[in-house]
C-alpha cells in the first residue's frame, strides 16, 4: 500500500521472470539502451559527407512554414497545391505559423475542398470516384463484418454508426441536389 514506505509488488522475482520470459532483462541497464541518453552529439554519427545538403531543385513555388528561415534543402513533391484548395493552403502557409490554430483549421478546410474538387473532376474523367470500392466497405461481407463486431464488448460500436453518415451522407445530398437540378432543367426545357 502506498500509505507506508515500502513498495507493494505483486511481481514475480527476477529469477522467475528470467526463466519464464525469453530475453527478460537483456536491456536491464538503463544506461545501456539505444536511445539513452536522448541526445548523443556526434556530427559524424551518420556517415554523411556534407555539412549542409545539396539543394533539391524547386520546380514550382514550394509552400513552406514561416517558422523556417528558408526552403529546406530536400522536400516532398507529392500533390502540388491546385484549385481553390491550393489557394487556401498557400494562404495558410504564407499567413500563419504552426502555432496558430487558424493555420491547421485552414489546412483541414482545404483538405475537404480538395476532396470535393477532385471528386467532381473525376466525373469528367474515365475513372470516376466510386465510394463503394474506394471505401473497401465490401470487405464487410467477406471479412466477417457482423461476427467481428457483435458479442465482443467492443467500445467502438457506439460511434461506428456515424461513419456511413459521414462518408455516404454528402454523396447522397450531392446526388439529390444533382437530380433536382436535372429535373428542374428538364421542366424549364419543356415549358
Amino acid at each position: 500500500m502506498p500509505y507506508t514506505a515500502n513498495k507493494p509488488s505483486r511481481a514475480r522475482s527476477s529469477d522467475e521472470l528470467r526463466a519464464a520470459i525469453p530475453g527478460w532483462g537483456a536491456d536491464l541497464d538503463p544506461k545501456d539502451r539505444p536511445s539513452v541518453p536522448k541526445e548523443q552529439f556526434d556530427p559524424g554519427l551518420n556517415g554523411a559527407r556534407w555539412d549542409f545538403p545539396e539543394r533539391q531543385p524547386e520546380k514550382w513555388p514550394r509552400e513552406r512554414s514561416i517558422e523556417h528561415k528558408f526552403l529546406t534543402p530536400v522536400f516532398g513533391t507529392s500533390a502540388p497545391p491546385r484549385g481553390v484548395s491550393g489557394v487556401i493552403r498557400k494562404y495558410s502557409y504564407k499567413k500563419y505559423s504552426e502555432g496558430r490554430a487558424a493555420h491547421w483549421l485552414l489546412l483541414l478546410a482545404a483538405d475537404r475542398v480538395d476532396a470535393w474538387e477532385q471528386h467532381l473532376a473525376s466525373f469528367g474523367s474515365l475513372s470516376p470516384d466510386n465510394p463503394i470500392t474506394e471505401t473497401g466497405v465490401l470487405s464487410e461481407f467477406s471479412r466477417h463484418g457482423i461476427t467481428s463486431r457483435f458479442g465482443k464488448k467492443r467500445a467502438d460500436l457506439n460511434h461506428q454508426w456515424i461513419d456511413p453518415i459521414l462518408v455516404g451522407g454528402p454523396w447522397l445530398i450531392a446526388g439529390g441536389l444533382g437530380f433536382a437540378a436535372v429535373r428542374r432543367l428538364a421542366r424549364l426545357h419543356r415549358t
Binding site: L71, V74, G76
Partner: peptide, 15 residues
Amino acid sequence: ARGLYSNCHNVNANA
C-alpha cells in the same frame, strides 16, 4: 547530429 533523426530540420518544408 544528436541522434534525433525523427526531428530532422532539413527535410520538412511544411512544418
